[in-house]
Nucleic acid binder design. Structure first.
Lengths: 347, 347
DNA sequence: CTGTTAGCGCATTCAA
DNA sequence: TTGAATGCGCTAACAG
């Protein structure tokens, strides 16, 4: 009995028509070299005659025990996720490995708490990659509960999931030491601290209250660095941006620069934010690094163009690493390399 | 017999342990309202005890006859596809509808001719959306051959696939009439004409030689417009960019502006290209629209910021329309609205 | 509300 | 090189 809606042609029908067994027909599509040229021809002719659309992927997945796809869970709506060049580079790395391994890449954007978990559970994928998200994200638990391999990029760490990323705390400490060196009043331009995404300037916030793991680690590292150069964390102003874009960086830096005493060193959490900060400094006639030292993060194009000291890391390589972890069954965390690139924005 | 590699727990095992039939267990997960609270509890407890990961998506897909995912075929590598803001808006539209309908979105980037076709065939999806591609793209034929619904955005049109987009020729003619009005020597800054993507300036190219359907239609419309204002197409210079970015727009426009006689009207195929063109005009001290009239396409943020006359269309809406076509089984083409937005760059 | 039956379409296993 | 049997894990359809 065929599905009425699509009058789907099956392998068995093709085999019948070709006068061979179902297995010969199956082999013709899956392992053609195991079939004689004569049989192959008969099967292909029958397939053509019947309009056979090829082996059904779901049936094949069930039988083979592999879905042939890898799930990528984005912590936010596509519009925001794809606007982040780092996220795009990461996805490109995932896509590279998927293509190389003959897998598809299934995107699971997060939209609303309840339905998201259901979609994660229901996705026909061989494993999940989570793009950096918040502590306690329900989709992470849902992914782990499927017993399929899970890799988290950036964080949060979780039992049952491996972690891929860089040592954000160490990198933040290192770049903090560079940018804060010789400064009187260090400051930070930060990503959001919690999913409330409130833009605000706060003095010496407790990093442990930050629910985004990557941001938390970076803040911890910058706190370390402030200590290293003899600054008091409680006096360090942290301008929290609501989103990672140049405009926010501009606005929040302008706020920072209007304060008295004025900060003279600015560690920002991305080159995007840094580029906005540069514009804000320009606007009030402050020079880098003479008046204010500045650093970014990511080594994006814009950092090169504007001469911003930054932390270089390869998101593309990290994306590829995540995909390989799942497709090759690695079972350990992976910490990627990073490097400080010194340019004119700092000493 | 359980799969050894994962010692997968099945619904039947859960049912056994709970002391109910498999169907009661199945209903507990798929249609919980059809099961008494008592049974539901027993089943959930058994599931917990056994570490059941939830119904297997592939098995469910096979049984239900639907993969629960929608395939999006990108004509190029992710790196390029995602760098295009229009492509991203389109994908966001697709994602919106997928989420709303409880479907996943499976991305199939094109990488190498042979393997791509295989991956398209093997993808467990309920239908395909093709992001604008070239005439005769093998992946389009492969998608159609699966007998699953196929929607092409932009083009090429194909038997067995529906088309979604705007009337590019009509829109191009309309904006061409605006920008070419009163010009002595109209010119065009174009997308690539073929997949060779050669950057070059050519006079009055034959649009029929263009293998990218969207570009072809726009060139045809601009040809119409040139005729409408009494210009000779054979004298219209077309600067063909190799990619859709501001830098290329800048370079090619600079080339155009160095010619004698110098064009005094510039129809560009995107706001990205237009923004580069604006920079090129600035660089040589030419004013818009006095010295050179200029138009873009898409009504992106940058067009608003730079005051560029443009063609407004909603890629997001078109992405959503593509997804709806597949998920709701519409069987007709869909032509979206467009509109000329007049700003200071033209008269 | 619960259970029985009967496959969905394919590929692994083993025998011929 | 080919074929027969079997069941991957689940759920529609129908009885009870």
């Amino acid at each position: 009995m065929r599905k009425s809606f699509s009058s789907r042609v099956t392998l068995a029908q093709v085999a019948d028509r070709a006068g061979v067994s179902t297995m010969t027909a199956s082999y013709t599509f899956s392992r053609p070299e195991r079939v004689s040229a004569a049989s192959r021809e008969k099967v292909l002719a029958a397939a053509r005659a019947l309009g056979y659309g090829g082996p059904d992927p779901s049936a094949r997945s069930l039988r083979r025990g592999s879905a042939g796809a890898l799930g990528v869970i984005l912590g936010e709506h596509l519009t925001y996720a794809f606007d982040d060049p780092q996220a795009r580079a990461f996805l490109a790395g995932v896509a590279d490995v998927c293509a190389e391994q003959g897998h598809a890449m299934t995107i699971l954007p997060v939209v609303d708490a309840g339905a998201d978990v259901a979609r994660v559970r229901a996705a026909a994928v061989d494993g999940y990659i989570l793009w950096t998200t918040e502590d306690g994200a329900p989709v992470l638990d849902a992914a782990i509960a499927t017993h399929r391999p899970v890799v988290v990029h950036g964080g949060p760490a979780a039992a049952g999931a491996r972690l891929v990323g860089i040592d954000n705390r160490a990198a933040a400490r290192a770049i903090g030491q560079v940018v804060f060196a010789g400064a009187t009043l260090p400051a930070v331009v930060s990503f959001p601290l919690t999913s409330a995404r409130r833009a605000q300037v706060v003095a010496g916030p407790d990093p442990h209250g930050v629910t985004f793991p990557v941001t938390r680690e970076r803040l911890l590292g910058l706190q370390d660095a402030a200590r290293d150069v003899g600054a008091r964390w409680s006096e360090v102003l942290v301008a929290v941006c609501s989103t990672n874009d140049a405009r926010e960086g501009h606005t929040m830096t302008a706020d920072l620069m209007s304060r008295t005493p004025r900060p003279d060193a600015l560690a920002t959490m991305s080159d995007e934010l840094a580029s906005g900060a540069v514009a804000a400094l320009d606007a009030v006639g402050l020079r880098m690094p003479r008046d204010v030292a500045l650093t970014g993060w990511d080594d994006a194009e814009v950092a090169h163009r504007l001469g911003i000291t930054t932390v270089a890391q390869s998101m593309r390589e990290q994306g590829a690493a995540c995909a390989r972890q799942i497709l090759t069954g690695t079972t350990s965390d992976f910490s990627d390399r990073w490097q400080i690139i010194r340019r004119g924005s700092s000493n």
